[in-house]
Simulated scan of single mutants.
Amino acid sequence: MRENGEPTEVLRFAPSPNGWLHLGHACSALFAYETAKELNGRFLLRIEDIDVGRCRPEYEEAIYEDLAWLGLDWERPVRRQSEHFADYKAALKRLRDMGLVYPCFATRKDIADAIAATGIDARNWPVDPDGAPIYPGIYKDLAPAEMNRLMWEGRTYAWRLDTESALAKAEAIAGKALTFSEDGEGPNGETGTCAVKPALFGDVVIARKDVPTSYHLAVTVDDAIQGVTLVTRGQDLFHATYIHRILQVLLGLPEPRYRHHRLIRDDAGRRLSKSARDMGLRELRAAGKTPADIRRMVGF
Results as ranks from 00 to 15, higher is better:
Ala117Met: 02
Tyr157Lys: 06
Phe238Cys: 11
Ser82Ala: 12
Pro7Arg: 03
Gly192Ile: 13
Tyr139Pro: 04
Gly137Cys: 15
Leu251Thr: 06
Leu230Ser: 13
Ala218Trp: 05
Leu44Lys: 03
Asp130Tyr: 00
Met297Phe: 09
Arg155Asp: 12
Ala122Val: 13
Gln248Val: 14
Cys55Asp: 14
Asp236Tyr: 01
Phe105Tyr: 02
Ile111Tyr: 05
Ile120Cys: 14
Phe105Ser: 02
Pro133Val: 04
Lys93Ser: 03
Ala62Gln: 03
Pro129Tyr: 01
Arg262Lys: 12
Gly234Ser: 12
Asp130Phe: 03
His216Phe: 12
Asn124His: 13
Gly184Met: 09
Ala68Cys: 07
Val52Cys: 14
Val249Asp: 06
Arg155Ala: 15
Arg56Phe: 08
Arg108Asp: 04
Thr232His: 15
Ile134Val: 05
Phe85Ala: 11
Glu58Cys: 07
Glu146Asn: 15
Arg149Ala: 01
Phe238Met: 01
Arg76Lys: 15
Val78Asn: 07
Tyr33Ile: 02
Ala106Asn: 06
Tyr157Ser: 01
Ile225Thr: 13
Ala106Ser: 12
Arg155Trp: 09
Arg208Gln: 07
Arg160Ser: 08
Asp162Ala: 12
Trp20Ala: 10
Arg155Val: 07
Ile264Ala: 11
Tyr64Phe: 02
Glu164Met: 12
Val127Ala: 00
Ile134His: 06
Glu283Ala: 00
Glu6Asn: 07
His216Lys: 11
Arg271Ser: 10
Lys140Asn: 06
Phe300His: 11
Arg257Pro: 02
His244Val: 08
Pro187Leu: 10
Arg96Lys: 10
Ala62Pro: 02
Leu217Arg: 01
Thr156Met: 15
Tyr215Glu: 05
Arg80Pro: 05
